[in-house]
């Protein structure tokens, strides 16, 4: 039954997902065309900087927009299929509440993951043209030197760094989706204005997660500040700091995701009240 639920949820989401992700492809192609155009190459440094900044802002806003749109869309899908009229169909199917939540979680995580991978690919694709433009103006600068300098500064190779980010994404993506589900489910406890209630719950949950994560990162931050205060201190291990911060924040997110799963399950199992 889980596979059938996944199949129908995927069928219901993939078209909109493709449409949203088309913006990432579009902005990437647009940036590549502009950055690779002869007009841009012959511009003086000042004009190139201004146009580059504008292009970067447009690019950044599009990627943020795409990421937010997919998250919001997944939230709407969950809300509609679980707590509105469509819920009458879903909750009368011969399936468990766990299967209902898991099917959405799996599909929406894949949706989000595809979006995130596309964004990373987009950044990776644009890195080449950007490095080339900088290289044209600064002969000492190449992509290889950037990679090498970044890697030696971080104490970790670029492929290893990319792998860590990818693993973190795999864990953090379903957790982020579960935060949305938890907020929507908590929003159902409101007598009226359940959508507004869900939004408020999401903001509240997000703030709590961020606050707890900040406290968890505190020891690493203290170490970092202590190490960077003394510029002669070369013993500071950026890799440990980075993994510490990433690990603790991911762990906190995981804990809250489990709590949100339990909340969603409880709301559907014990407190379901479709209008």
């Amino acid at each position: 039954m889980l596979s059938k639920l996944i199949k129908y949820e995927w069928k219901g989401t993939y078209k909109v997902l493709m449409l949203i992700n088309a913006f990432t492809v579009f902005i990437t192609v647009l940036c590549m065309i502009i950055l690779g155009s002869p007009v841009y190459r012959v511009m003086d440094n000042e004009s190139a900087l201004v146009w580059g900044m504008l292009l970067f802002l447009l690019y950044y806003a599009t990627l943020i927009g795409v990421s937010m749109a997919v998250t919001i869309y997944c939230g709407i899908r969950f809300y509609k299929s679980m707590y509105t009229d469509e819920g009458y169909l879903m909750h009368t199917l011969p399936v468990t509440k766990n299967q209902l939540i898991l099917s959405r979680l799996i599909v929406h995580s894949i949706d989000m993951f595809i979006t995130e991978v596309l964004i990373y690919l987009s950044v990776a694709l644009l890195l080449g043209p950007v490095c080339k433009i900088i290289g044209d103006r600064d002969p000492d600068f190449t992509m290889e030197t950037l990679m090498y300098e970044s890697a030696s500064e971080m104490g970790i190779s670029i492929p290893a760094f990319a792998s860590v980010i990818m693993i973190t994404l795999v864990i953090a993506t379903p957790c982020a989706i579960l935060l949305v589900y938890g907020a929507i489910s908590l929003g159902q406890t409101f007598q009226k204005h359940k959508v507004m209630g869900s939004l408020l719950c999401y903001v509240g949950l997000y703030c709590v997660v961020q606050t707890v994560s900040s406290f968890a990162m505190f020891p690493q931050m203290i170490t970092y500040i202590g190490a960077t205060k003394d510029s002669l201190n070369v013993s500071f291990d950026f890799r440990n700091y980075f993994f510490g911060v990433l690990g603790s924040s991911t762990f906190i997110l995981l804990v809250f995701a489990v709590i949100c799963y339990i909340i969603s399950y409880h709301m559907m199992q014990k407190k379901l009240n479709l209008d």
Binding site: M1, K4, K7, Y8, K11, G12, S81, D85, E86, G87, Y88, L89, T92, L93, P94, V95
Partner: peptide
Amino acid sequence: KMISYLPERTYLQSGLKVLEMVDFFGDF
């Protein structure tokens, strides 16, 4: 599995075709 329920409201997914809803019911 024992109950076939028709609610007072439309619970069908509006984005699907009639035949897809037939498949949906057939699957579940």
